[in-house]
């Protein structure tokens, strides 16, 4: 038992949203990127969906025509950052030290460390996780998710908040559909059931199938920035 010693217990109504600090930092990030004329995307997915391979291919295709910078979130290694840096993109690595998501203040520090002069596109590769990054907006113009067909088509229904927080989905590894005995429509239908407005790009980062449509989308967004 707590001895309150006859003191008066006060109830204080706060009605305060948690993550306001993160939201405020995200707004600042978005403003700095906009001021620098940078179009930015926050890429999210499960581990092993092929985010980094998609990024490597995208750099190969677009680096000759635009300046691209990468912020790489990883729990503890620099493996992904080494892979994209080898392509010649300016890369800042954030090791989250076990944390399961990036947050806006940490991304803000990374942005401060970057030379944004002339950068057209910033890709933030979030930590592979379909839950934790959802609530933590980073201030990117668009949130994009990668769903690989090997994960199964039930993921949108299992992680609705993540699928609703994104406006673009890349359905990756479509070259494996025949092997898995699955149809692409199973994935697009499930995604649209949770997020009817989602723009969906079926791709295979391995064979290059569908990747041109994705590149064209990026080119258009960068041009219209």
């Amino acid at each position: 038992m707590i001895d309150w010693g006859g003191e008066i217990v006060i109830k204080v109504r706060l009605m305060k949203k948690v993550m306001e600090n993160n939201q405020a930092a995200a707004a600042i990030n978005n403003r700095s990127l906009n001021d620098a004329g940078v179009f930015s995307v926050d890429m999210m997915s499960s581990p092993g969906s092929g985010k980094t391979t998609i990024l490597e291919r995208t750099l190969d295709a677009l680096l000759p025509e635009m300046k691209i910078a990468i912020i790489q979130g990883d729990v503890d290694t620099t493996r992904d950052a080494q892979r994209v840096e080898a392509r010649g993109a300016q890369t800042v690595q954030i090791n989250t030290g076990g944390a399961c998501h990036l947050d806006a203040p940490v991304v803000g520090e990374a942005i401060d460390d970057m030379d944004l002069e002339g950068v057209d596109l910033l890709v933030i590769e979030n930590v592979g996780n379909l839950i934790c990054p959802t609530g933590f907006e980073l201030g990117a113009d668009r949130r994009i998710m990668v769903l690989s067909v090997t994960e199964g088509s039930d993921k949108p229904e299992k992680y609705p908040a993540m699928f609703r927080s994104c406006s673009v989905a890349l359905v990756n590894k479509v070259d494996l559909l025949p092997v898995l005995g699955l149809e692409l429509e199973e994935f697009t239908d499930e995604i649209r059931r949770i997020n009817p407005d989602m723009e969906i790009f079926p791709v295979s980062a391995l064979t290059g199938e569908g990747m041109d449509t994705w590149y064209d989308w990026l080119r258009r967004e960068v041009r219209e920035r």
Binding site: W4, E7, I8, V9, I10, K11, V12, R13, L14, M15, K16, K17, V18, M19, G135
Partner: peptide, 10 residues
């Protein structure tokens, strides 16, 4: 929602 509605103390 994710809000702190209130707290009590002395």
């Amino acid at each position: 929602e994710l809000t702190i509605d209130s707290y009590e103390g002395e």
